[in-house]
Computed example of a mutant assay.
Amino acid sequence: MVCILSKEQLPAFIKENYLVTAHRAQEAVKALYGQLIEEMLEAELEHEFGYSRYDYRNKRIDNAKNGHTRKTVKSELSPLEIKVPRDRKGEFEHIVLKKYQRHISTIEAQILSIYMPRE
């Protein structure tokens, strides 16, 4: 099982986000899940382009990052609004979240398969 927060970080996270009800805990998990998907999309684009977000000097291609597009997708938790990074030419297709994909429950299985040991 993958744990985003360590046992030491969890009490601080609960206190910082004032997680005193199940609803607030669910909203916090939803926010973390959205951030995780956004970071995965950023990592895909960085890997494809070969330079990180602020390291444009090492850019070796004629295409470039060009901001984000907001997209609402359905998940097991509830609808999430995701910021999807885009490229200037519009040629890059994300693997984690396809261009017209609106439901991301299959991504949850993909994430687990990445981190779960294979037998």
Rank of each mutant, 00 (worst) to 15 (best):
L36I: 07
I37A: 03
A43Y: 09
R53H: 14
M40V: 05
L45N: 07
A43T: 09
N66E: 06
T72R: 14
Y33A: 03
K65L: 04
Y51D: 02
D62R: 12
Q35W: 06
M40C: 10
S78F: 08
L32P: 03
A64R: 12
L41W: 09
D62M: 07
E48Y: 15
R57M: 12
Y56N: 10
A31R: 10
I37M: 13
L45C: 06
S75N: 08
L32I: 03
F49T: 00
G67D: 10
G50T: 02
L45F: 08
D62V: 01
D55Q: 15
G50R: 09
I61Y: 10
M40D: 05
L77P: 01
D55L: 08
K59H: 08
Y51G: 02
G67F: 09
Y51R: 04
D62P: 05
R53G: 00
N63T: 00
E42V: 05
L45P: 01
N63I: 00
T72P: 03
P79Q: 13
N58Q: 13
E42G: 03
A31Q: 10
Y33V: 00
V73K: 11
E48L: 10
Q35P: 00
Y54V: 00
K65M: 09
S52Q: 13
L41D: 03
K71D: 10
K65Y: 04
M40Q: 12
E38H: 10
A31Y: 09
H68Y: 15
N63H: 06
E76N: 15
E46W: 11
E76Q: 14
N58A: 10
E48D: 09
L41I: 04
H68T: 13
K59M: 11
H68W: 12
Y33N: 02
K71T: 04
K71Y: 14
Y54P: 00
E38G: 03
K59Y: 05
I61P: 02
M40G: 08
E39D: 08
R60Q: 14
H47G: 14
E38A: 05
S52I: 00
E39Y: 11
D55C: 07
G67T: 03
K74N: 14
M40L: 15
L77Q: 08
F49A: 05
Y33C: 01
L45S: 05
A43D: 12
K71Q: 14
R57Q: 14
K30C: 10
A31P: 01
Y51W: 05
S78V: 00
R70S: 14
D55P: 01
E76L: 15
E48C: 09
S78T: 07
R70H: 13
Y54C: 04
P79F: 13
Q35T: 05
E44T: 04
Q35F: 12
R53I: 01
N66Q: 08
Y51V: 00
E39R: 14
D55E: 15
N58P: 04
I61M: 08
H68G: 05
Q35E: 11
L36N: 04
H47P: 00
